[in-house]
Design a protein around this nucleic acid. Structure first.
Lengths: 369, 369
DNA sequence: AAAAATTTAGCAACAGCGTTGCGTAATAGG
DNA sequence: CCTATTACGCAACGCTGTTGCTAAATTTTT
C-alpha cells in the first residue's frame, strides 16, 4: 500500500485505483466518465479498463445510445469478484461481516467474547466465524483477507496491539502476525474508529472530503479522514477525542485530567439527561470543526445510536448555530449509514483498499522512519 | 503542485523531489545516500542527479574515500541557485524575507502597514519591498515567486481572501491573481499558520512527522502538518484552535461561545499571570495531542515569544505529565527556530515547494471537487 | 611493482507506462 | 446511400525507472 519510490508500477496501480473508485461510486460508468473524472486520455482509460476486465473486476454491462454516433460501452463493477471479511473486536463482543468489492455488507453476525478474553480465544472465535462466512458460496478463492478493527492503543504500522483498554491479556500482542499464521489470510489491523471512517469514505467515494467519525460506545473516540486518507497520528493514537478537556473546573476523569468530554458527557447521560449529553458531545464536535475544518461529521457507536435523533439534532444545531460559521463554511452532519456494522465493514474495506485502493507514497518515512 | 492523474512526468518530479529533500536535509550527500533513503536503483539516482546538476540545483563538492574502491562523488545543494520571497501580512505590519533553496533566511525586514490598509496599499508595500530584496544581488532571474502568509479566513485553492479578521477592505479579494498581475511573479497565498508549519517541516526534512504550530499572536491559531503535507481543512479554515471550548462555564468569547481557549487564555494574560496563561494554552495543546496524536509541537507567535521559556515549560510539563501518555507516546515540544520569521519564511518555502517539493496527487478532487 | 579485489559510475538495451496519430466501427440524420 | 458524429483501438512514440554489463579509480594482496 505504501511505498517510497514512484516507479511505473505505481502509475499503473494509481490510475487503476482511480477507475475502481469511479466504479465503486457510480455503479455504472463508461470510458468518457472516467476520462472526465481523471483527465487521463481516452486511450489510457481503454488500457486500464482492459486490464480490469481481464482481472474480472469490472465487466461490460450494455451500451449507451446518446443519440448520434457509435454507442458507448457501459461498464460496471463486478461486486462478487472479490470479498473481504471484517471484524470489530470490542470488549465483550465480536462482530464479523462479509463485504464485497462494491462495499456492500452481505452477512453480519455478532457473537459474545469471554470476559477478559485472551489472544488465543479471539483467534479461535475468528477462525470459526471465518470458516462459516467463507463457506457460504465457496468464497475462499475470492477472499482478499481479514480486516480487524480493534480498541487501542495499538501500533498499526507493525500490526501490534500495545495495550488494549480494559483487556488484561493484551500487552504488545503481534496480532497481525499471529492471525495471518493461524488463519492463512492477509490480515490488516487498525484502530476501530479508523476502520470506521474508512467505511464512510468508501461509500462516499471521491466526493468525500475531510471528515470525522464520532463514536460513542463505552467511551468517546473518533476516526479521521484527512486529505484523502485515514489519519492515525504519529503512534496510531489519534482520536482520543473523549479525553479532551471541555470544562477546566469539571469532574476528574479516569485519565487524571479534569472535565474531559467523556466524563462530562457520562455524567449527563447517567443523570438520564440524554439531550444534555448530546449537547455536550456537540460542543466537542464544534471544537473539532474549529480545529480541523471538516466537510463531514458522521455519528456512530452503540450508545449514541440508542438515541440517534437526539444526538443528530444536537450536533446539527450546534454546528449550524456557531456564530463564526459563515455560509461558505458548510459541514454535513449525518448518522452512519452502516449502523452497528461500520467498524467491521470498514476493516474489511481496508483490506480491499490495499489491493484495489489508491496507493500511497510514504515519503515521510524515507529517513530514519 | 497538485494533479489528478499520475503520468511519467509525475514520476520524474516525485523522485527528483525526494533527492532534493535529501539534499536540503543533509547538506552533503552522495549517490549511495540517496539509494539507501529512497530505494531507487543507483542508476536511477544517477539520472536524477545528472538532471539536477544540469539545472544547477545541486553540484559536486568533492570526493569521499571510504577506504577500498573508487571514491564516491559528494554532492551538495546550490543554495543560491533559486530564491523565493515570503511575506507575513498581519494587521499592522508587513514582514518580508528572502529565502534560498536551502531554506536559509537571508534578509528579513518589517514595515508598518496603515491602519485598515486596502489591497492597493498592500500591493504598493509589497512591490517596493520586493524591488529592494530582488535588487540585492540581481536575483530577479533566480526568483521563483512570492509567498503570502496571511490572516484568514481565506480560500487557498482559489487564492482568495474571504474576510480577513479585523480588516474592513478585505472581503472576497482575489489577492493571488491581482498580486501576480501587479508584481509579475508567481504568487502563493496561504493562511499564516499553514505557511508557518511548512517552514518547520522544511527545516526538519523527511524526519518530520505529524505536527502542529501553535501561534499566539492577537488570537490563538495553529497550523497542521499531517501525513507529510499541510492540512488546511475543507474550506482553508483549519486551525481556529483558539475558539475551541475548554471551559463550558467560562466567560463569553467574541465568537459567541463560552469558555474558548482564547478568551480564557486572554483573561489570565491580562491579569498578568503569564504562567497561568501558559498552563491554559498547555491544556489546549494536550487536547490537540489527544485528538491528533502529534509527533511535534512547535510554539510561535509574538505574544508567546515574549515569554518563551514560561510557555515552553508549561507545555512541556503538561505533555509529559498527562497520565495517559505511555512511554511510547513521545511528542517533541519546541520553540520555533525561526522566531518571528516563521510565517514569512514558510510562505517563501511554499513557493519553492511548488517547484522542487514533493508533488501531490489530488485524487480527492476528481469528482465534482 | 604488479595483480586482485572492491567500490563507484555510466552506457546501452529493455519493459512498461501514458500519449499521439490515425484508421475502423457503429449510429443518426439527410 | 452518403455524411457527420461519436466511440474505440492498433501502432508507433517518448519518457520513466530497471537490468546487464563495462570501465574507472582506489586499496589490498601478492
Amino acid at each position: 500500500m505504501t511505498r517510497v519510490t514512484a516507479d511505473v508500477t505505481f502509475l499503473r496501480d494509481y490510475n487503476q485505483a482511480l477507475v475502481m473508485a469511479v466504479g465503486r461510486t457510480a455503479r455504472t460508468f463508461e470510458r468518457s466518465t472516467v476520462v472526465e473524472a481523471t483527465g487521463l486520455t481516452p486511450q489510457a482509460v481503454s488500457k486500464v479498463i482492459a486490464r480490469l476486465t481481464a482481472d474480472g473486476l469490472i465487466r461490460p454491462a450494455g451500451l449507451r445510445r446518446p443519440g448520434i454516433g457509435k454507442p458507448a460501452v457501459v461498464y460496471e463493477l463486478v461486486p462478487d469478484s472479490r470479498y473481504a471479511i471484517g471484524t470489530h473486536v470490542a470488549r465483550r463482543t465480536l462482530r464479523l461481516v462479509l463485504v464485497d468489492l462494491a462495499g456492500t455488507v452481505h452477512h453480519s453476525a455478532v457473537s459474545p467474547l469471554p470476559r477478559d478474553f485472551t489472544p488465543e480465544q479471539l483467534l479461535d472465535a475468528l477462525s470459526a466465524g471465518i470458516d462459516t462466512l467463507a463457506g457460504i458460496g465457496d468464497l475462499r478463492s475470492r477472499l482478499t483477507g481479514l480486516g480487524i478493527g480493534m480498541i487501542g492503543p495499538l501500533d498499526q504500522a507493525n500490526g501490534l496491539v500495545r495495550d488494549a483498554h480494559g483487556l488484561r491479556h493484551w500487552h504488545d500482542v503481534p496480532l497481525r502476525e499471529i492471525a495471518e499464521k493461524r488463519l492463512c489470510l492477509p490480515v490488516h489491523l487498525d484502530k476501530d474508529v479508523t476502520a470506521g471512517i474508512t467505511a464512510e469514505a468508501w461509500r462516499h467515494g471521491a466526493t468525500f472530503g475531510d471528515a470525522a467519525l464520532i463514536m460513542v460506545e463505552s467511551g468517546i473516540g473518533c476516526g479521521f479522514w484527512l486529505g484523502g486518507a485515514a489519519h492515525r497520528g504519529a503512534h496510531t493514537n489519534a482520536g482520543e477525542f473523549g479525553h479532551t478537556v471541555v470544562d477546566l473546573t469539571g469532574p476528574r476523569c479516569v485519565c487524571g485530567r479534569h472535565g474531559c468530554l467523556e466524563i462530562v458527557h457520562q455524567h449527563a447521560a447517567e443523570a438520564g439527561d440524554v439531550a444534555q449529553a448530546a449537547r455536550v458531545l456537540a460542543v466537542g464536535v464544534v471544537n473539532l470543526l474549529q480545529t480541523l475544518d471538516l466537510a463531514h461529521v458522521v455519528l456512530a457507536g452503540a450508545d449514541l445510536l440508542r438515541h440517534p435523533q437526539t444526538y443528530l439534532a444536537a450536533v446539527t444545531e450546534a454546528v449550524g448555530a456557531d456564530a463564526r460559521r459563515a455560509d461558505w463554511l458548510s459541514t454535513r452532519v449525518a448518522l452512519s449509514s452502516l449502523g452497528a456494522d461500520v467498524i467491521a465493514a470498514g476493516a474489511a474495506m481496508q483490506v480491499l483498499d490495499q489491493h484495489y485502493g489508491i496507493p500511497e507514497l510514504a515519503h515521510s518515512l524515507i529517513v530514519g522512519g
